[in-house]
């Protein structure tokens, strides 16, 4: 109970540092640190599957962001600070917290979940599917429609990225073919 609170507080500080730092490179590195803290928190919360996935995904997203950052040659523009978006952002965040605070008291207490659906999965999962990793059994057998939707979304995102980043643009009728 106490250790998860400590990790969450560290994650809050890490995300504030990641957002407020001027240097973009250190920004991206600090976001990687926040992701590693989240992987640690998943281990504490007894979710080793999620810890492995979070660790690996964090490394890959860090590589993707670094490839973009290191290519940037333009200097950081020195503009005077603009206070209007800052005030709007802080007030919006405070509003969200204000609305969330009464809802949290309605939730079941931390550490005592209501497991109406999952009870059946836990009891019959191994006999029905033969898989001893219950998360795999749920994700690929009981709720495989979820994974099918995930595959569609992943395919769409990959297609979008490939189309946005393609090298040869569409040829208009008047232009020569060697251009672009």
């Amino acid at each position: 109970m106490m250790d998860i609170n400590l990790i969450l507080i560290l994650m809050i500080f890490g995300s504030i540092i990641a957002i407020e730092t001027k240097d973009i490179l250190s920004c991206v590195v600090v976001v990687g640190v926040v992701g590693l803290f989240q992987s640690l928190a998943f281990l504490v919360l007894k979710a080793p599957d999620l810890a492995i996935v979070q660790l690996v995904v964090e490394i890959l997203s860090l590589v993707i962001l670094l490839r973009v950052i290191l290519r940037k040659e333009a200097p950081e523009p020195q503009h005077h600070p603009d206070y209007f978006p800052m005030v709007v952002g802080i007030s919006l965040a405070a509003l969200v917290l204000l609305f969330v605070y009464p809802i949290i008291h309605e939730l079941p207490e931390f550490g005592y979940p209501i497991m109406r659906v999952a009870k059946e999965y836990i009891e019959t999962g191994m006999k029905a599917t033969g898989a001893t990793n219950l998360v795999s059994a749920v994700i690929l057998d009981f709720r495989a429609y979820d994974t099918l939707g995930e595959a569609v979304v992943l395919f769409t995102a990959v297609c979008g990225a490939l189309i946005v980043l393609r090298k040869t643009g569409r040829k208009k009728s008047g232009e020569s073919e060697t251009e672009a």
Partner: peptide, 21 residues
């Protein structure tokens, strides 16, 4: 070993991609 121990298709797929990266 995704059905026996932690891991599975998602984590393994990203690790295979990372080796080529």
């Amino acid at each position: 070993h995704g059905h026996l121990s932690p891991g599975g298709g998602f984590a393994g797929g990203v690790i295979i991609a990372l080796s080529f990266v």
